[in-house]
Design a binder for these strands. Structure first.
Lengths: 399, 399
DNA sequence: TTTGTTTGTTGTCAACTCAAACAAACACCT
DNA sequence: AGGTGTTTGTTTGAGTTGACAACAAACAAA
């Protein structure tokens, strides 16, 4: 028991270099968020002295995190030297596993994707091991000399402490030691996290300014299942064993269309995930004597976009279920925003009204100010998520 | 937009005194948690130099936060000088409002209650204003010279930023400016928070070590309604407008026994609060031709303690509803513990088994390690909560 | 060309922690 | 009683860091 306090305290106390460490983080974040930016502007905004900023910038250049990219426009005096994260140099290998496709990318400090390869996800774990290891090893061997790290985004639970995947419901994989395998094969450190957490982090780093400025928000990722990522005070909250954010399995009502991956029929996920939507749509068409079943969610979205009544109706119905869960999150967290991610975002104009109605459910109407927004990360948020895991790690350990 | 970063940064950067500020907090916390403790032991546990600890202790003594209380036993050398929070000196006035009773107390830095007065809570807001103001003013005038602050625990939502009560459902009071009134009458600063948040904070400060060591836990306060307090990384999370933690109003199912204070019939609170329990119990007795209705929850607990079958049955049924909500929280937060507070804790041995069963509901059984514990704060946790609000404030501003 | 502004660097000072030396207080042994 | 080793708390000098002010360089506008 004393040990806990001991170890905690040793990290908590401030030493000489603590000042520099803190300010280094501040400067680095300014460069990241507001680049291109000059030393003088960083000084003005942080209220650090120009001399201090210069010293820190020198250090960060020495580590190779930032670089000068020429001069900016004068405002009546000497031209400012503009700074930026060092781009073009590979620092992260991202591995993004989704039920359909697995993607392996190479990225730089700014999150730019330098290379990208993908293959269909298989339930054959040996095949997965072989494919992932070969692609990661390939990137690693082609970029020796750079301090690469590997980030993985998975549709399941991962324990960051041990670096192992605990469970992936879709394939029912338990204790998959892919992290250890990658490290053994390449010597690179690996950081694994749940896809919703990774996307929440990516949204925090690369999202629309409206979201990025938000310190408290919940990411709701609608895919085969429903995952949530909790961001509190600008930090992704992971909970014990990294298992936080499984609100997809909260009790919503016991009349769901499908059986959830956890085996029950009363989860949010069983009501509002892609699987649930498809099931309800196909059941409806069956009743009215329709043709073959649709198994591809994107297909259904396409139908709805073209105005097919049943597809639109099912999506609006889904928005209600989504809304119930989201209203629970709004009431419980009182966040600044809830961000929805997944293919369903393509149909945002169909579901928006219903969602916003549920957003107004609150103890007190006046307080219902939380935004319900679609993700702004584009087509492949989980890929960016896997990369961001590495970047966040690198930045945090810049000291 | 820039302003946000600006103000944030100015608080975030580290100056010369930042080191001292941080270490002062560390030392103060050691004195608080492990008192009586000597300078030498603090040095050993924090790995700060003895000279540094001495300098900080001098400062803290100067502010009047800690005091020497004689010497301890020798372990073969010079006797250690033991340190402790300064006790006996009033520093906090706590105002605890519950639907039944309002209590005003005077407390010292260690949370010891020095004086205490109570009166029945009335729905007459003028009466409440008058009563609270007179008692707080009385304590204040009797203790001039001490830097008093006022903490309030309320069964509703308070905006800490503005210091005003936004809403108390039980009395349907809106925008009650009691904070401003107290400050105007006495000149003392006032800090107001939701009762569940206050109790969560108190549990963090004065709870059983098993809970106090927990960095992430959820407080579930069962009273007239159900309130939750979210503790993440040792901090109470308040959300926008301080409105976080209203999980009592999450959707559980639309067949509740009573209508919730928010007007709906599908909230957790409508299923598992004291009001809901009483309603179900009385409905049951009505069916079997029983006598007059019970309106006092403590009474029902008493019946159950004495083995009355119907009361026991209703409580076990309640445990199921409580369990559904708690399992949602466990799945979503993956906390280290869920702490239950309220009169129902007296019947812990009746509801324990059912609760623990729901605690095991998890994505993966092996991960279901969260403890479901009864509060350890004794009979009046909300009183201690109101006081702790002030203490936390005072400690945080010790710089 | 001159003037005023902006940028980035250099040098001095103050705050702080650390490490080591030191004095005081004490237990234990002879 | 007296000596020895241990523990506690204080004092002193060294090293790190940011604030501040002075300064040189670069530039726009008059």
């Amino acid at each position: 028991m004393k040990k806990i306090y001991l170890s905690k305290a040793k990290n908590q106390i401030a030493r000489h270099n603590t000042i520099r460490d803190i300010n280094k983080q501040v400067v680095l974040n300014y460069v990241r968020v507001q680049s291109p930016i000059s030393r003088a502007e960083i000084s003005r905004e942080t209220s650090l002295q120009r001399s201090t900023v210069s010293a820190i910038v020198d250090e960060l250049q020495g580590i190779g995190l930032i670089e000068e990219i020429g001069t900016g426009d004068s405002t009546g005096g000497r031209k400012p030297t503009l700074l930026q994260l060092r781009t073009g140099t590979p620092v992260a290998i991202g591995v993004d596993i989704t039920p359909r496709e697995t993607t392996v990318v190479l990225a730089d400090l700014a999150g730019n994707i330098l290379r990208k390869e993908a293959f269909p996800t298989s339930s054959d774990i040996d095949y997965m091991n072989e494919q992932i290891l070969s692609k990661v090893s390939c990137y690693a061997s082609e970029n020796t000399g750079h301090e690469l790290e590997v980030g993985m985004s998975i549709p399941g639970i991962a324990d960051q402490a041990s670096g192992n995947i605990l469970y992936i419901p879709y394939f029912q994989w338990s204790d998959w030691d892919i992290g250890r395998r990658i490290t053994e094969a390449t010597g690179l450190p690996v950081i694994i996290d749940n896809d919703a957490n990774a996307v929440a982090l990516a949204e925090l780093w690369f999202g629309d300014p409206e979201i990025r400025r938000t310190r408290n928000f919940i990411m709701v990722m609608v895919a085969e299942g429903i995952g949530t990522g909790i961001v509190i005070d600008g930090q992704v909250y992971r909970g014990e064993y990294g298992a936080a954010g499984e609100f997809g399995h909260m009790y919503i009502g016991n009349n769901a269309a499908v059986i959830c991956s956890c085996g029950r029929r009363d989860c949010w996920e069983a009501h509002a995930s892609e699987k649930a939507v498809l099931s309800r749509y196909n059941a409806g068409r069956n009743g009215s004597g329709g043709g073959t079943a649709i198994t591809n969610f994107e297909h259904l979205i396409g139908l709805a976009e073209n105005g097919e009544k049943q597809a639109v109706g099912i999506l609006k119905e889904t928005a209600e279920y989504l809304g119930i869960g989201i209203s629970n999150l709004l009431i419980g967290f009182s966040p600044q925003a809830v961000v929805v991610c997944g293919s369903i975002v393509r149909a945002w104009n169909i579901i928006n009204n219903e969602l916003q109605d549920y957003g107004k459910r609150s103890i007190r109407q006046e307080l219902a100010g939380a935004m319900i927004l679609p993700s702004t990360l584009g087509d492949s948020p989980t890929i960016l998520g896997s990369v961001t895991l590495v970047l966040a790690q690198k930045f945090a350990s810049a000291n």
